[in-house]
Amino acid sequence: MSPNSGLKNAHSAASSNPIQRMGLVLDHLVAALGDDPSSPLRRAQILVDIDAHPDTTQTEVMERLKINKSTMNREIDWLYDHGCVMRQSGQIDGRVIHMVTCGYSKKNLSLALDYADHSHINLQNFLESLINIFDSSKPTIRDAKLLVSAADLGKATRPELFGRSYQASLTTNVRSLESLVEQGLLETDTEN
């Protein structure tokens, strides 16, 4: 471990509580996904899986994550179009496409892994258990960040909560918040 990473880890441990650390992991995942907080958590899972298995194929990722083919095709295209993964034809069978994470995605996944004991399994379990909290079919990183921020703040006004989440239109934030309320994850009360 380099002195810099040791210092970074010490700083992370000293400057944030566990709830904030979950928020920081989400921030790094957003950065790894082209700064798009509207990304589904499932997309982050796919990226983490590819990072954990360099040169893996689409079929292998589908089998490991139990994702159907159409979703997988869509997500892989998205990751490729946004420069998160590189695709390369196989040397033995040219029809087989191998994938690796690259550039800013690889760098930011590495930062997220700092909070998961450098374990892809821990990061994957984190995402899986986070997805399972939601009733909605496609929870996004924005939803997760709002929930974690609310847990960190304790009790907050909507502007305070939105100020801690990702930048978006008020409509987007309100829609996400109301969905969390409907799912029984957040509750609101009114004070005079």
């Binding site: 821990n122 258990s129 994850l185 957040l186 009114t190 004070e191």
Partner: peptide
């Protein structure tokens, strides 16, 4: 009149499990 938001106890309990997963238990 101010609307305040807070996490439900059920969600906090579930987040405890999420953090446990991240930190390997």
């Amino acid at each position: 009149m101010v609307h305040r938001v807070r996490t439900t106890d059920d969600a906090l309990e579930k987040l405890r499990g999420v953090y446990a997963a991240l930190s390997g238990g």
